[in-house]
Design a protein around this nucleic acid. Sequence first.
DNA 1: GTTTGAATTTGAGCCAGCGCAACGTTCTCT
DNA 2: AGAGAACGTTGCGCTGGCTCAAATTCAAAC
Lengths: 246, 246
Amino acid sequence: MTARMTDLTHRKTLPRLDESLLTYLTPFSKLEKREIRSILDQATSRRYDEGVSIFDEGAPAERFFMLLDGYVRVVRVTPTGEQVTALHIPAGQLLGIAKAIGRETYPATAVTATESIVLSWPTRLWDGFVADYDGFATETYKTVGDRMGEIHNRVMEMATQQVEQRVANALLRLINQTGRKVSDGIEIDFPITRQDLSELTATTLHTASRLLSAWEKQGLVQSKRKRIKVLDPHALVVISQPKSDL
Amino acid sequence: MTARMTDLTHRKTLPRLDESLLTYLTPFSKLEKREIRSILDQATSRRYDEGVSIFDEGAPAERFFMLLDGYVRVVRVTPTGEQVTALHIPAGQLLGIAKAIGRETYPATAVTATESIVLSWPTRLWDGFVADYDGFATETYKTVGDRMGEIHNRVMEMATQQVEQRVANALLRLINQTGRKVSDGIEIDFPITRQDLSELTATTLHTASRLLSAWEKQGLVQSKRKRIKVLDPHALVVISQPKSDL
DNA sequence: GTTTGAATTTGAGCCAGCGCAACGTTCTCT
DNA sequence: AGAGAACGTTGCGCTGGCTCAAATTCAAAC
């Protein structure tokens, strides 16, 4: 649970900050380059190892963050210590924006799924950004809405679908959001254990493991330790569909 | 699925619009009376019968709404027709605020749980309200955040708790949000069927019915058709807790 | 290269809760 | 008042997926 500091000008780790890619950062897509620069100039950059927390549920929301590179899991922990993953955040998005929804503390814990580069600003700058840059708030709230929709979808899934369908859906979502095309399929771009997958689908790692084994035998997926590659996405789509009566 | 129009000045149905109660309307708590009046003057008032939809998932978000009196269920329907209730909205809150989260269409369906009085405005007025009234946006986003939190909690519950615990939790939430104290307990303030309860807890109406029967035998609750009264909230709290090892 | 711990696989048994079905009760409408 | 619909109850059998347990594979650290 440690994280190392990198210095702010460590260009090598910030390849995406190329001019032409600034608008790739979700909250900035409506802003002018000059404005974006001004916001970025006030940021602190930091590198996190895989599997460390960026902020913790319940802690005072002293900063807000933007994921420049990597992937982050948003998780919550039950009183009994079980973890539940709410969603995955891809590079280019804000996180920890408690202020945007009127909270003083972070509503969940953010854990890096890969080594990640994260910008952050003190929360006190938030109101200024919203006031000064028109599109900033709009884009941010779109993000909030999208996440709400995703969580909402999770509720639907968990309420109506079987475990097999949920796991198939989770894999499809992961390859859509974070898939990397390789020779014979699409690979999930970060290390993911059976346990992670089970926390994403509200099942046990045993069941997740069994499903992956079965699918591997059928040639739908290939998986090594912490790596999953989907060979036949369409077959997964079929599985993910609620089975209609024949 | 019909709804009757009432005229705008039908004071009898708008008892809450008394001066002293204006700030009871969540989005207005930070505004001056004059400002609130100005917003309300632009609203259309309408009465809905119980069990009708105010707006439907996927429809263009032409208006946004405020629930003046009554209760509304936010539901989504699966391709196979199963309903899942995401949350309940009490009087005083906004709903259908697709614009606030950058959506062009309603992300879910809103169904009245009781006869309800609803104000509405054309969506095109939204940006003006946000720009003209400072606290309006803030309060609105707090509401969005709260709902996000609630849905998030639902995901946690469904992922980690047994049906019995979830139903107990749902009842507790309902009596907290909408409970009315009566002589010997707390009654849920609107008609609720076993089916409704099951859609709230991702189970079947059969299981919900069995649980209520069991609890009634133990004297924890009393229920008539469409009415549930909780006699012993504390016992429900105990049930809702994940059972620790003895 | 060996040790150690994390990740994964697989088996076997079991039970919460679902599906189905039948029946009872209470409303509503004419 | 009677018919029909909506709502609620309860029994029974079945099974998806959980729990418990044990063995195996892999990776990193020493």
